[in-house]
Design a binder for these strands. Sequence first.
DNA 1: GTATGTCCTGTACGACCGTACAGGACGGTC
DNA 2: GACCGTCCTGTACGGTCGTACAGGACATAC
Lengths: 173, 173
Amino acid sequence: MTTADDTRTRILAAARELFAERGYAATSLADIAAAVGLTKTAVAYHFHPKGRLASELLSPAAGEMLGLLGTDYASRQEFVDALVEFAVRYRSVIRLFMEDLAGDDSVSPDSERATIRTFRDEIYAKLVGDDPDPAIRLRSWALLGALQWGAVKTMDLPEEQVRAVLLESCRAL
Amino acid sequence: MTTADDTRTRILAAARELFAERGYAATSLADIAAAVGLTKTAVAYHFHPKGRLASELLSPAAGEMLGLLGTDYASRQEFVDALVEFAVRYRSVIRLFMEDLAGDDSVSPDSERATIRTFRDEIYAKLVGDDPDPAIRLRSWALLGALQWGAVKTMDLPEEQVRAVLLESCRAL
DNA sequence: GTATGTCCTGTACGACCGTACAGGACGGTC
DNA sequence: GACCGTCCTGTACGGTCGTACAGGACATAC
């Protein structure tokens, strides 16, 4: 049955785009529905509850993210490189990682929640290490900000180019 | 009449803090009211409509921002320096500049709206110049992201230190 | 032809939002 | 004492949100 899967895919695509440009909370089911020519109840039928949309968009990237967080990198720069690589590859959903998806209980099922909720903060923590040096903190947040905005606001550029520039920029931080 | 002004000041302080950490749209009048021990109607009495809160928090910085946008800088780096200086000094409200305050018609009165609404984009435009070079676009967005996150997430650090690090970091972009 | 399951609509609900409005408490002025 | 403006509360309204639910259209299976 291709039509159903097709509808699901189109909803996911619309949601990905709208989430990227407005954020998760600021995008309503009605917005997504309008983008694909359906009613919001139809969207809710396929993705229920709303958090499942975020969850499903995140899931391919989430595994890799856990990998990033789990491995030990020789230097901070190696981790930064991997992070940039990750952010650029999944730039269409990178904003979801950086947002506070908590408060919406249903983004991820049960046990994963604690992990998902603080994805951004876990990246930050790994970036800072156990070093409370203010300069490191500042540069780490700056790096995350640069990564998010740089990735989200240049969706029209080829991935390769974004990666090259962002890699260079983030190394400078 | 100190009590009334005091209440206004306390409301403004609470709003500034909540806006900084959650964003304008995600902060309700009830949240602000709870932070100062009042009802949301009391907050609405002093600041009406809600956009006036943002407007009043923004107003001291807005003039200086217009100055930034108006003057011609010899080099891009000079503008970046001025931008960092600005962002750090007004870091408690810098997030409001970066947000889309449009959609809420009442943030700024009438004619200013068109200006205020696109503050972030005007900064970006001045940063890129008329150069559509993708690398410049990328680095400009990265810079804005770094500036916002770096400023917002390190509110506990002394302003001087934030400025020093951010100045160095943003010059590298 | 009838039954079944999928896909979608329409309607309705409770929760929250910003806002409007009437009225009470309080202090200062005549 | 009567009057008045300021500050704040309680209540209520319309709007939007995500969600629940009944039912219709339609294809497929028997």
